[in-house]
Write a protein that binds this DNA or RNA. Structure first.
Lengths: 164, 164
DNA sequence: GGGAGTCGGTTTCGATTTGCAACCAGCCGA
DNA sequence: TCGGCTGGTTGCAAATCGAAACCGACTCCC
């Protein structure tokens, strides 16, 4: 996942890509979850913490921040509010399909922390439900049917690249 | 990657895990790269943008922010300063092994953006160097030798879990 | 009926962080 | 000597964050 060539100081026209969302899916993702608290909230929701008070207590986040981040996540379709009682109506926050699809990213972040900051052993292990074996995250080539290590990945402009 | 049970309002002692870094590798990771600009800087460095001025122009980040984030990344051993000329000595920023190991996470973030925000087609395609096929990111079970989809992942406390 | 408690917020306001712009240091080349 | 380039630092206004107080809807209990 590396462009090996040092870039000339004045970028070539074809590669003068800037941060704007449209031109980079990483930027697009960060637009939605590019915030420390947001990621931690999602981590908690993945772990089954779904209610306002629980999240607040677990994270130690300020209540106004939490309210803001939650409504933003709902707006973006990452979480949805699901009533769990009436009178008064109270809602909990659940992952949508879009939100659940962030698991890959959370697993990746967790993996890096595990590898570089878990000298005392990892805090959490993710295992295969059916056999209990710890799972691993890889990049694969469907054609060669093999694991591709990072040095063997190249990036190319795709069809959605706004070639300004 | 889900605890399916709703958590009781008063968490059980064994699972009263809070945000602090030690108890969660995601929090540990965010401590280092839990910032929008930091991630974008890393994305650029992965793409071969390594010099201060280039990064600043490409990202549109404020110069003081950039200086701060870069020195923080160097402190954390994610980037290293490598001189590219003498008189005056000027350095560029390169990924360390630890930094390069973030590729998995960046690929995951990019993948999510691709899946949910690239209606017009993806801006960038990652391909297998040797055959040019677009690669995919998966979670695998080394024992069963198969891809595990997210619903089949369970989390368990690991040896490093600070059981307070 | 009244008072306390729960849950999910909103408001307020001081502290921190951000971002723009100006400035600076070291060196080059004309 | 006069810009110009690169890689910063400094100052200051504006936006964001965070702690704490407050609020509304409802329940429970006396």
């Amino acid at each position: 996942m590396v462009d090996t060539e040092p870039r000339p100081a004045t970028g070539t026209a074809s590669e003068a890509v800037t941060a704007p969302t449209a031109s980079c899916s990483i930027a697009a993702t960060l637009e939605v979850v590019g915030d420390r608290w947001t990621v931690l909230i999602l981590r908690d929701v993945f772990r089954g913490v779904r209610r306002f008070a629980q999240l607040q207590a677990d994270l130690g986040i300020a209540r106004n921040m939490l309210a803001d981040r939650l409504s933003r996540l709902v707006e973006h379709g990452v979480l949805e509010r699901v009533p769990y009682q009436t009178r008064p109506v109270r809602c909990e926050y659940r992952l949508t399909a879009k939100g659940a699809d962030l698991s890959t990213a959370l697993i990746a972040l967790m993996g890096w922390g595990d590898r570089w900051y878990a000298a005392e052993g990892v805090p959490t292990i993710l295992v295969h439900e059916t056999c209990g074996t710890p799972v691993e995250q890889h990049v694969r080539c469907p054609h060669c049917d093999e694991t591709v290590n990072p040095g063997r990945i190249r990036s190319r402009p795709g069809p959605g690249r706004s070639s300004v």
